[in-house]
Amino acid sequence: MTTHTTGTREEWLAARLELLDAEKELTRRNDTLAQQRQALPWVRIDKSYRFETDQGGASLADLFGGRSQLIVYHFMFGPDYKAGCPSCSSIADSFNGIVTHLQHHDVAFWTMSRAPLEKLQAYKKRMGWTFPWASSSSGDFNFDFNVSFTEQQQRDGEIEYNYQRGGHAMDAAPVPEPVVQFADTCGTDPSTYARDRPGISTFVMEEGVIYHTYSTYARGVDGIWGMYQWLDRAPKGRNETGVWWRRHDEYGNG
Rank of each mutant, 00 (worst) to 15 (best):
M170S: 15
R67C: 01
I159E: 03
T192P: 06
A92M: 07
P79V: 05
I200P: 00
D46R: 08
H104V: 02
G139A: 05
W225T: 10
L40D: 08
D62V: 01
Q154V: 13
K125G: 11
L120F: 04
G226M: 12
S87K: 00
H4C: 08
Q103N: 11
Q154R: 15
F203L: 00
R219V: 15
G208K: 11
F143K: 14
G97T: 06
Y211C: 13
V243E: 00
A14P: 00
L40W: 03
R9F: 09
K24V: 13
E160G: 06
A34Y: 04
A173H: 12
A61I: 03
G166H: 12
K124D: 04
E18K: 14
R114M: 03
G208P: 08
R50G: 10
S90L: 12
G226L: 10
P190H: 05
T241G: 10
W12T: 02
Q164W: 07
G7V: 03
S201R: 00
R9V: 09
Q36Y: 07
Y161E: 05
A92E: 03
S215E: 11
D232S: 04
D171S: 15
M112N: 05
S138G: 06
E151G: 10
G84E: 01
L63G: 00
S137M: 10
P198S: 02
R247N: 07
Q103C: 02
M170A: 14
E25H: 07
V107T: 09
M205P: 00
W12Q: 03
Y49I: 13
T192S: 12
Y251L: 02
A115T: 02
N142A: 15
E118V: 06
F203Q: 00
F64L: 03
K119M: 10
T150Y: 06
G220R: 15
R155F: 09
H212M: 13
S87V: 08
T130L: 09
G166A: 13
P132D: 03
A122V: 07
G7S: 07
S89A: 14
Q55P: 01
M1C: 11
C85H: 02
T213G: 11
T241C: 07
Q103D: 04
G208W: 12
Q35K: 12
S137P: 03
T185D: 08
K236N: 07
S59R: 02
D189K: 11
T188I: 09
R126S: 13
Y49V: 12
F109I: 02
G7E: 12
D144Q: 11
A122S: 13
P116S: 04
P79R: 02
H101A: 10
G97R: 05
E160M: 06
T3Q: 10
I159S: 05
Y123N: 14
A218K: 04
P116V: 04
E52P: 04
V209Q: 14
R37M: 14
L102G: 03
Y81T: 00
M170W: 10
Q103E: 09
T100N: 11
E25V: 10
G157M: 06
P176T: 06
V72P: 02
A173P: 01
E10T: 08
G56A: 09
A15Y: 01
R233L: 08
N142I: 07
E23N: 01
S215D: 13
L63Q: 00
L63W: 00
Q55T: 09
T27N: 04
Q121S: 15
